[in-house]
Amino acid sequence: MTRFVLRRILAAIPIGLIVTLGVFALVFAMPGDPLRELAGDKPIPAAVLAAKRAQFHLDDPFIVQYLLSMKDMFTGHFGTTFAGADIASQLRLRIPVTLKLATLSLALQWIAGLLFGLYAGFRRNGVVDRMLLLSTLVVLAVPGLVLYFAGQFLFGVQLKWLPVSGITEGYPLAYLLPATCIAITGFAGMARLTRTSIVDTANADFVKTARAKGLGEQRILWRHVLPNALLPVVTLMGIDFAGIFAGAVLAESIFNLPGLGQFLFQSIRFHEGGVVVLLSTLAFVMFIAINLVVDIVYGFIDPRVRNV
């Protein structure tokens, strides 16, 4: 087990290196002077230029620049935006918002997805199953953008049940609508996968064997079907969890929640290249770390994976 965990950690390191290097190369090693963009059309005084070059280590070789900026990132020296806001304090304000949104939406979609998926899987071709297949087909097909706007328009603007945007109404209330929108898109995949997995497992040979040797239905369900059927579901939960930031970018920009996703959206709008790189590097590192944890958890649940 320890070897398995160590091997996974070792495998994550080169990927993290390649990814951060790639992001860095894309932005800082592009042809052209990054300071030109920073100043816009205005001419820059030579002294300011020299100071900025030193601040961003622009005169060092590429690898040194990369290492220095990674060091800055990991020691928490994030610098400021062009407008002068301290990025570290921005992050402190924004991370809780995104975390609240993420936990609420993940809780909603996992609970609903598992319940409906399990029920539809056991009562295959029943009313719930058919309804689920049809509705999830539509949800998977409709672009998230349309879904978010439609939810906002219907429940916020027309029916006025929930706040349209912003977080002035406080934790559960203001987050409910965006979290539900994220949850609906995630729920569709979750419920479908759970259903398919239950159906496949219920027809597997080991379940027939269990039934043939006279085990009770309850025992077959809890000891044989569920533990095997839920393995792909756990994988999807991991993907969901790791990818939640991407969903948050869209939801936070549309519902105007001051989280990390909205920060990324605004940075793109205002051409804050540095902030985009910082946020996406954080997102990548988080993604790799979460996947690592999911892999390790998966190794505990499914002994077959450990030997791979």
Binding site: V23, V27, A242, A246, V276, S280, A283, I288
Partner: peptide, 12 residues
């Protein structure tokens, strides 16, 4: 595969 797709597209 180790990248969240949307974020990678945004960066590039």
């Amino acid at each position: 595969f180790a990248l969240p797709g949307l974020i990678a597209l945004i960066v590039i």
